[in-house]
């Protein structure tokens, strides 16, 4: 028997495509965000409110990934999204760079300021698949366990911002705001944190300021 060394990452095919996407975003000066969370944390709601508040100031492209249905994409179009494309994965638990590559020609890239990629609701698999984004934003809501950062460390380690949604419901569950922040910082000391409620809109201003600030300063990786 002969042993043959093989060097290479098992995600290298995806990483190559992601690098092409990243170049494309940079050339077109697009700030790109990969939104990740469990199902039901409020990714689509956050984007609906963002479209309503900033739709006339920013050119936003939106990719809505779902295992089945185009419901999220339809919600974003209803909320005023002019450049929205669904990706139905038909069972796959994450988006990959090839799927983004496939829908990208449908966007008028030189017009976009920001591209939101709403990933499939899943805190495990999307963390391993680079989509060429500038940053990952992880959402968690107060109806979930406050130990999520410890249960899904890879995702919180690789995210730049954690948004805590549904803070209007604080007190109705055992979710502890201080505890979730402590857990997130234990995993990732540099993670930024914003608390808000998409329903009552409390705290939304912080998110809008964060987003517009990042677009204005040009994201760090550009």
């Amino acid at each position: 028997m002969a042993q043959i060394p093989l060097k290479g990452k098992l995600t290298s095919e995806n990483d190559l495509l992601a690098a092409e996407l990243r170049d494309e975003f940079r050339e077109n000066k697009i700030f790109s965000l990969n939104l990740v969370s469990s199902p039901g944390s409020g990714k689509t709601s956050l984007l609906e409110k963002t479209l309503a508040a900033l739709g006339d100031k920013l050119e936003m492209g939106l990719i809505a990934g779902d295992v089945q249905t185009e419901n999220d994409a339809n919600r974003l179009i209803q909320a005023g999204g002019k450049m929205v494309r669904p990706i139905v994965t038909n069972g796959a638990c994450h988006l990959d760079a090839k799927m983004i590559m496939r829908v990208l020609p449908e966007f008028n890239l030189n017009r976009l300021d920001v591209l939101f990629i709403e990933n499939v609701g899943n805190l495990v698999c999307p963390s391993s698949f680079d989509l060429g984004e500038d940053m990952k934003v992880v959402l968690i809501s107060t109806t979930e366990g406050d130990d999520k950062p410890l249960k899904y460390p890879a995702m919180f380690r690789r995210s730049s911002l954690m948004i805590i949604n549904k803070i209007d419901l604080l007190g109705l569950s055992d979710f502890d705001l201080d505890r979730v922040k402590k857990h997130a910082r234990q995993i990732n000391a540099n993670i930024e944190i914003i608390e808000l409620s998409c329903r009552t809109e409390v705290g939304m201003e912080s998110w809008f300021n964060w987003l517009t600030g990042k677009i204005r300063e040009g994201c760090p990786s550009r």
């Binding site: 028997m1 002969a2 042993q3 043959i4 060394p5 093989l6 060097k7 290479g8 990452k9 098992l10 995600t11 391993s128 410890l150 460390p153 890879a154 380690r157 910082r185 234990q186 995993i187 990732n188 000391a189 540099n190």
Partner: peptide, 28 residues
């Protein structure tokens, strides 16, 4: 899951291993 330095307590740490998803060799 404490991603901070046990010596100086800083959270500014870089991972040196633990994120691998690699093939190392094949035997034929």
């Amino acid at each position: 899951l404490f991603f901070s330095c046990p010596d100086c307590d800083s959270g500014q740490v870089e991972l040196t291993q633990g994120e691998e998803l690699d093939i190392s060799y094949i035997e034929v």
